[in-house]
Structure formats: structure tokens, C-alpha cells
Simulated scan of single mutants.
Amino acid sequence: MASQLPAFPRFVFTIAEPISLVFGAIYAIAWPDWFTAEQLGTPAAAPAALTGHSRVVARQLGNCYGLAFLVAVAVLYSTSEPRVVKNYLVALWLADIGHVAISCLALGRDQALAVADWNILAWGNIGITAFLFFTRTAYFLGLFGPDKPHPAQLLRKKAQ
């Protein structure tokens, strides 16, 4: 079904987003101290050294990013059912809202609004996630045009 998506959302959902999930997984698993320290935008806000507990939580988050990558690939590259892909995108749309909200709450109003001062993780957690949210919203509203017809639909039309 992903091949039937209009070109821009197909690129975003099937290539760009899965790649970003891989990078998120790698950074959280390989460098949990850095990954955790950067969450609030200022390394000074993070503890000097993480506890083992905090490293496990950061690495488990990385594992969840890895799982999200695998689910994305499984859904987007294996199903021919438009309903499955659209339900998957709705689930991500809802998760985008939570992801941005949690990140903004953690940063606080002033830091969340200081876009020019965001570090790479603030851009990932808020900027990129908001971009994905608005891309999904635009797709749902049909702003990229209709999905391409499924090959089976084309065969049925030719047979008529």
C-alpha cells in the first residue's frame, strides 16, 4: 500500500521517518549519557553522570525506536491494505501529539518557545515530530492528492 501513497508522504513515511528512527535508536543505545543530557536542551540541566538505572531507561527508549523502525518497515512494505496503513498512520499521528507535548512540558514554556536555542534533540523531539504530524494531517485531508489506485483495481477496470 505504501507504493500507492502520493510521492511526498510516501518519501516521508517510508524513507525519512524510518531512517530517523534508526538514528534515534543508535544514539540512545550507544551514547545514553549524551542522549539523556541533551533531552532538555542544556547539558548543564543533566546530572554529571547517569546512574545505571538511567542508562537502562535511555537504552530501552533506543530499543523502542528500533522497534518502531521494524514496525514501520513491516507495515509499510508488506501490506497491500490501505486501511492497515491508514490506521498505522493514525496511531503515529496520535503518538506525535504526545511526543511533542511531553517534550514541551519537560523543556518548559520559555525554552520550548526559544526555537533558535534548540539543540539537535529538541529539533528531533519537537520540530521533526511536528513536521511528521502536519505531514500526516495534510495526507489525511487529501492535500497531497489521492492515493494511486491499487494494481488489483486497475486490473478490474481493464477487465470491464
Rank of each mutant, 00 (worst) to 15 (best):
residue 2 A to Q: 04
residue 2 A to N: 08
residue 4 Q to G: 14
residue 5 L to R: 00
residue 5 L to T: 02
residue 5 L to P: 05
residue 5 L to K: 00
residue 6 P to C: 01
residue 6 P to G: 05
residue 8 F to S: 05
residue 9 P to F: 03
residue 10 R to Q: 13
residue 11 F to H: 04
residue 12 V to C: 02
residue 14 T to V: 02
residue 17 E to M: 09
residue 22 V to H: 08
residue 23 F to R: 03
residue 24 G to K: 01
residue 25 A to Y: 01
residue 25 A to P: 04
residue 26 I to W: 13
residue 28 A to R: 00
residue 28 A to G: 06
residue 29 I to Y: 01
residue 30 A to F: 09
residue 30 A to W: 11
residue 30 A to T: 10
residue 30 A to P: 00
residue 31 W to Q: 13
residue 32 P to Q: 04
residue 32 P to H: 04
residue 34 W to C: 00
residue 35 F to N: 01
residue 37 A to F: 05
residue 39 Q to H: 10
residue 39 Q to W: 07
residue 39 Q to F: 15
residue 40 L to I: 06
residue 41 G to L: 04
residue 41 G to D: 02
residue 45 A to F: 12
residue 46 A to Y: 03
residue 46 A to M: 05
residue 46 A to F: 04
residue 48 A to D: 10
residue 50 L to F: 08
residue 50 L to D: 01
residue 50 L to W: 09
residue 51 T to V: 11
residue 53 H to S: 15
residue 55 R to F: 06
residue 56 V to G: 05
residue 59 R to E: 13
residue 61 L to W: 09
residue 61 L to C: 12
residue 62 G to E: 01
residue 65 Y to F: 14
residue 65 Y to C: 08
residue 66 G to T: 06
residue 66 G to N: 04
residue 66 G to K: 00
residue 67 L to F: 13
residue 68 A to P: 03
residue 68 A to D: 07
residue 70 L to P: 01
residue 72 A to Q: 07
residue 73 V to C: 03
residue 73 V to F: 09
residue 75 V to K: 00
residue 78 S to P: 02
residue 78 S to D: 10
residue 79 T to C: 08
residue 80 S to Q: 09
residue 83 R to M: 10
residue 84 V to L: 12
residue 86 K to L: 13
residue 88 Y to T: 03
residue 89 L to T: 01
residue 90 V to N: 03
residue 90 V to L: 13
residue 90 V to I: 14
residue 91 A to M: 11
residue 91 A to W: 10
residue 91 A to V: 14
residue 92 L to M: 13
residue 93 W to K: 04
residue 94 L to A: 13
residue 94 L to C: 15
residue 95 A to T: 03
residue 95 A to H: 04
residue 95 A to S: 14
residue 96 D to C: 12
residue 96 D to S: 04
residue 97 I to Y: 09
residue 97 I to K: 00
residue 100 V to D: 04
residue 101 A to Q: 05
residue 103 S to I: 04
residue 106 A to L: 15
residue 106 A to E: 06
residue 111 Q to R: 14
residue 111 Q to C: 07
residue 112 A to T: 02
residue 113 L to N: 03
residue 114 A to E: 07
residue 114 A to C: 02
residue 117 D to I: 02
residue 122 A to C: 15
residue 122 A to T: 13
residue 123 W to K: 01
residue 123 W to N: 07
residue 124 G to I: 06
residue 124 G to R: 10
residue 125 N to R: 05
residue 125 N to W: 00
residue 125 N to D: 11
residue 127 G to Y: 07
residue 129 T to D: 00
residue 130 A to M: 14
residue 130 A to P: 08
residue 131 F to Q: 01
residue 131 F to Y: 15
residue 133 F to G: 02
residue 136 R to S: 02
residue 136 R to T: 04
residue 138 A to M: 08
residue 138 A to N: 09
residue 141 L to M: 10
residue 144 F to L: 06
residue 145 G to V: 08
residue 146 P to A: 07
residue 148 K to C: 11
residue 149 P to K: 12
residue 150 H to P: 12
residue 150 H to A: 11
residue 151 P to N: 08
residue 153 Q to K: 15
residue 153 Q to R: 15
residue 154 L to C: 07
residue 155 L to Q: 15
residue 156 R to Y: 08
residue 156 R to G: 05
residue 157 K to V: 11
residue 158 K to F: 08
residue 158 K to G: 04
residue 159 A to C: 05
residue 160 Q to W: 08
